[in-house]
């Protein structure tokens, strides 16, 4: 981590600080103020996009801890989101629980299901674990559809919006704040987790599980912990998603979402908290770009062009990143910062 010229670390605390100088703090504050001011000057449509991005960030943070840090590739993330979503939906819609009680339960339920499907991870690695997590997705969806009387099956389930002391999070702006605060907390927890004891154990398992074990990391419990934490994030994101749409259906959690979450990690940068954010933001913005460009392209080139444009673009971006910047946007961001710091003398 480079420091501005003339700034020196004099304690380990300073060396470990993420926001080291006053300028860093000012920029962080300015950014947060900008985020919290968004509802003042953005339209409802843009707020919807931002809210969905926020929910996606929470979810991708979870996948990042599990896949990016602990190296356990999961393609069941949308499934784990659905567990959280339906837990929260059923608790609020059928049992009249408050959203604030249902949200932790959703997180916990998703975490528990994650633990269950994480169990094979001690025995199987890589490709086989991916297969197991794909199975997890379809088993979860099957269970949700079969429990018709509870979950509404294919018909879905109407879900109330969260409320607090009579105030209902009904407007786009209010829900945006809710998601923003949870996303900020999620980012804070994720970053701190990965830079301390548990996070280093995760990376140790990812980089060299044999050595990790010899150096005293209990593989089973730390792999399960990664599954648990990753799925807790998924559960929170799933719950926020269905409460936002005030409706829960299995169609909100298609299998392809899990693949795209992984794609977001690739684009943003695996094993980087900032990368999870960059990835979620960039691929979601790409979607929006496609919805704008698609109709124009359909009119100009071919009527079918718009339909597949989204898929093609996403695939293309992921391929380009895999080839030219496998470390993702987070690495680019580091380079930009270094360039800015050293300019005009790049040594």
């Amino acid at each position: 981590m480079g420091l501005p010229s003339g700034t020196f670390n004099q304690s380990y605390g300073q060396d470990m600080a993420i926001f080291r100088t006053r300028t860093h703090w000012v920029m962080l504050l300015a950014f947060l103020i900008f985020l919290f001011a968004c509802p003042l000057f953005f339209s409802d449509r843009i707020l919807t996009i931002l809210t969905i991005i926020g929910i996606t960030i929470i979810s991708v943070h979870g996948l990042n801890i599990l896949t990016g840090y602990c190296g356990q590739i999961s393609l069941g993330h949308a499934g784990f989101m659905a567990v959280g979503a339906y837990t929260s939906a059923v608790l609020t819609a059928k049992l009249d629980w408050s959203f604030w009680a249902a949200l932790p339960c959703a997180a916990l339920a998703a975490g528990m299901v994650g633990l269950l499907f994480g169990l094979p991870s001690l025995r199987i690695k890589g490709f086989y674990l991916i297969m197991a997590t794909i199975a997890a997705h379809f088993i979860i969806m099957w269970v949700i559809l079969q429990l018709y009387s509870v979950t509404g099956g294919g018909n879905g389930l109407a879900v109330p919006r969260p409320e607090i002391g009579g105030f209902v999070f009904k407007s786009k702006g209010s829900y945006f704040y809710l998601v923003l605060i949870i996303a900020c907390l999620g980012t804070f927890f994720a970053k701190n987790l990965v830079r301390t004891r548990a996070g280093r154990a995760f990376i140790a398992i990812r980089d060299n599980d044999l050595a990790a074990e010899v150096m005293g990391v209990n593989l089973l419990s730390y792999k399960l912990l990664a599954f648990f934490i990753g799925c807790v994030y998924a559960g929170v994101a799933g719950s926020l998603l269905v409460h936002y749409f005030a409706f829960a259906t299995v169609d909100q959690f298609p299998f392809m979402n899990s693949v795209w979450y992984l794609g977001m990690l690739i684009v943003g940068g695996m094993g980087s908290t900032a990368g999870a954010i960059f990835g979620a933001v960039s691929l979601k913005l790409l979607d929006e770009l496609v919805t704008i460009v698609g109709p124009i392209l359909s009119a100009a080139v071919a009527p079918q062009a718009a339909a597949s444009l989204g898929l093609i673009m996403r695939g293309l971006v992921i391929i380009i990143f895999l080839i030219f910047e496998p470390r993702g946007l987070a690495h680019r961001w580091q380079m930009v910062k270094a360039y800015y710091r050293l300019w005009p003398f790049s040594h």
Binding site: T196, R197, R200, I203, A204, R206, D207, N208
Partner: peptide, 23 residues
């Protein structure tokens, strides 16, 4: 058999795992 993605310092910190107590 090092943790190739971590810095030297973090490799050593990772070895402190059994001596650390935070959950």
């Amino acid at each position: 058999e090092l943790y190739t993605g971590l810095t030297t310092q973090d490799n050593l910190m990772a070895a402190r795992h059994v001596l650390m107590k935070q959950n």
